[in-house]
Simulated scan of single mutants.
Amino acid sequence: MTTITGRQKAALLLMQLGKDRAARVMAQLDVTEMEELTSEILRLDRVDQSLADEVVDEFHAAAEIGPGLGGGLGFAQQLLEASVGKEQAAGMIERLQASMAGHSFDFLQQADARQVVSLLDGEHPQTTALVLAHLRPDHASAILAGLPEDLRADVAHRIALMERASPDVVAVVTEALQRKASAVLAPRELSAVGGVQPLVEIINRADPATEKSILEGLSARDEALADQVRALMFVFGDVVLLEDRAVQLVLRQVETGTLAQALKGSGPDVRDKILRNMSDRARENLVEEIELLGPVRLSQVEEARAAIVQVIRGLEESGQIVVRREGEDELVA
């Protein structure tokens, strides 16, 4: 038999059962299994008859087979509506389409950020925003930092206001960029975005200068939106919002020299929060290091603080600590 996965075989079999019988089978599955099978059905538009026969034989199932098997969006939507109802089916289809659209720009995921900046040169800011919203936040951040300064805030603003992207629009943009990429990027096998949170994740991974530039540009365009973004971001001063255990985990990954630079000019609440979560010896060494530093350039202080914030964000992403933003409810154990 042609090599296909078990999930693909199950999707093929469902497509041959007819809508009603397939719906009864789907109703016995949990939501995750339904979405996985529906995802496969969405990818199967027309299926070779001989392959369908092989699948039927393997499952020892009887089915009426027509001249060709119609899969695709229409069949998937009918099947889900019969299984879980029209409203829930619409939501599942929308999530699956968004997930599949996210793979449209896979050919850019491993490309050097400077190459992607070159590729996007001359594109409309909305196109650039659409692409960045589909990429990994760390990669999108590096690309955003490479854009001309007057363009960064415009693109950031568009990402924040973007709620949904039509799969057809994504397909058109992908096709156009793939053609253009052939002259910029090394050939590769190709295979609901946007909003404030994706923008925050992108800015969170930017260097301090890029972060400042983007936020200032956003403020000039939309002060309320800029305030919303700032409220969701974690900055060095927010260390006072961390639980003591979380602070201790962070300090284990930060060198004393970096910590000393970060604390230069910091408020007493931040300084006290850090010092009281250190051993007596470590506390003495840090205080001595701060005193020996003398005056420090502001850029060095900002760089040290950004490094510590990156450690905090990394621990949050890995689930080792919980970050509470200003104004959020207290955590209850």
Rank of each mutant, 00 (worst) to 15 (best):
A113C: 05
T127D: 09
A160V: 10
Q109M: 15
S99M: 12
H134M: 11
H157M: 04
L120M: 10
V184L: 07
D112C: 12
H134W: 10
L185Y: 02
L108P: 11
G102K: 08
E175V: 11
D150A: 14
L119Q: 01
A142Q: 14
L119G: 02
S166L: 05
L130E: 00
Q110Y: 08
L161R: 14
E163L: 02
A140H: 10
A142M: 13
G146R: 11
G146V: 14
D112S: 15
E123P: 12
A183W: 09
E149F: 00
L130T: 03
A111R: 10
A153Q: 07
S118H: 06
E149W: 00
L161I: 15
A145E: 09
S141N: 08
L132V: 05
V116G: 10
L151H: 11
S104F: 13
S141Q: 02
H157K: 01
Q110D: 01
T128M: 03
R164K: 02
A171G: 11
D112K: 15
V155Q: 06
A183L: 10
Q126H: 13
D112P: 13
P148A: 13
A113H: 11
A101D: 15
S141W: 05
M100A: 01
A133T: 14
A145F: 03
A129T: 11
G146D: 15
R152S: 04
T174C: 14
H124L: 01
K180A: 03
L151D: 04
L144N: 08
P167C: 10
V131N: 08
I159P: 01
M100F: 04
V184W: 11
I159Y: 05
A153N: 02
H103F: 15
A140L: 08
L185T: 01
L147V: 06
D154W: 00
P148F: 13
V116E: 08
S99K: 15
D150H: 15
S182L: 10
V172G: 08
A176T: 15
A98M: 08
P167G: 09
R114M: 13
L147H: 02
G102H: 08
L132S: 01
A181E: 07
F107H: 09
H157Q: 06
V116Y: 11
E163R: 14
P167Q: 02
V155D: 03
G102V: 06
G146L: 12
D138C: 06
V170C: 02
L108F: 12
P167N: 03
V117S: 07
M162H: 11
R158N: 05
S118C: 07
V155F: 13
D150G: 03
A133I: 15
